[in-house]
Amino acid sequence: MAAAAAAGAGPEMVRGQVFDVGPRYTNLSYIGEGAYGMVCSAYDNVNKVRVAIKKISPFEHQTYCQRTLREIKILLRFRHENIIGINDIIRAPTIEQMKDVYIVQDLMETDLYKLLKTQHLSNDHICYFLYQILRGLKYIHSANVLHRDLKPSNLLLNTTCDLKICDFGLARVADPDHDHTGFLTEYVATRWYRAPEIMLNSKGYTKSIDIWSVGCILAEMLSNRPIFPGKHYLDQLNHILGILGSPSQEDLNCIINLKARNYLLSLPHKNKVPWNRLFPNADSKALDLLDKMLTFNPHKRIEVEQALAHPYLEQYYDPSDEPIAEAPFKFDMELDDLPKEKLKELIFEETARFQPGYRS
Score class of each variant (00 low, 15 high):
Y317S: 10
D177P: 04
N276H: 06
G357F: 00
E322I: 01
I103C: 09
A35M: 11
T206W: 12
I90P: 00
A52C: 07
N271Q: 09
R148S: 12
Q97P: 11
Y312C: 09
E220K: 14
G10L: 14
K55T: 03
D149V: 15
Y30G: 01
L155R: 00
R24P: 02
S320F: 08
L28V: 05
L157N: 13
E341F: 02
E60A: 14
S320D: 09
N238M: 09
N276Q: 09
K73N: 15
F348D: 11
H180S: 11
L115T: 01
L237S: 08
R135Q: 03
G230H: 00
L184N: 11
L265H: 02
L252S: 05
L121N: 07
R301H: 08
D111M: 06
I324W: 09
D283L: 01
N47W: 12
I211E: 13
A42P: 03
T94E: 11
N238Y: 14
K340E: 13
D283W: 00
R261F: 08
V14R: 09
I211D: 12
L289M: 13
I140T: 00
N154C: 06
N262P: 01
T206S: 15
I256M: 12
N158Y: 14
V49C: 06
I256G: 06
R353L: 12
P319H: 09
I86L: 09
A309K: 04
L170K: 07
V304F: 13
S142M: 08
G242P: 07
K300N: 15
A2T: 14
I256D: 08
D336V: 14
H239K: 09
L150N: 07
G32H: 03
A3W: 14
I243Q: 05
A260H: 00
A189T: 14
A2E: 00
K117T: 07
L69I: 06
K285T: 09
V145K: 03
L278D: 06
Y263N: 15
I198N: 14
V49I: 04
D332Y: 15
S223T: 14
A42T: 14
C254S: 15
K270M: 14
T206A: 09
D175W: 06
T351Y: 00
W212F: 12
S142Q: 05
N47K: 15
G215M: 07
C254T: 09
F329H: 01
N27G: 12
I84L: 04
C216G: 08
D106G: 00
D124S: 09
I95E: 09
F168M: 10
G22Q: 09
K151R: 13
D332A: 10
L157V: 07
L107K: 04
C40K: 03
C161G: 02
C161P: 01
L335I: 11
A42W: 00
C65V: 08
D44A: 09
K330I: 03
V18S: 01
I31L: 07
F354R: 10
F329T: 01
S208K: 07
V273L: 11
T26K: 10
A309F: 02
G34V: 15
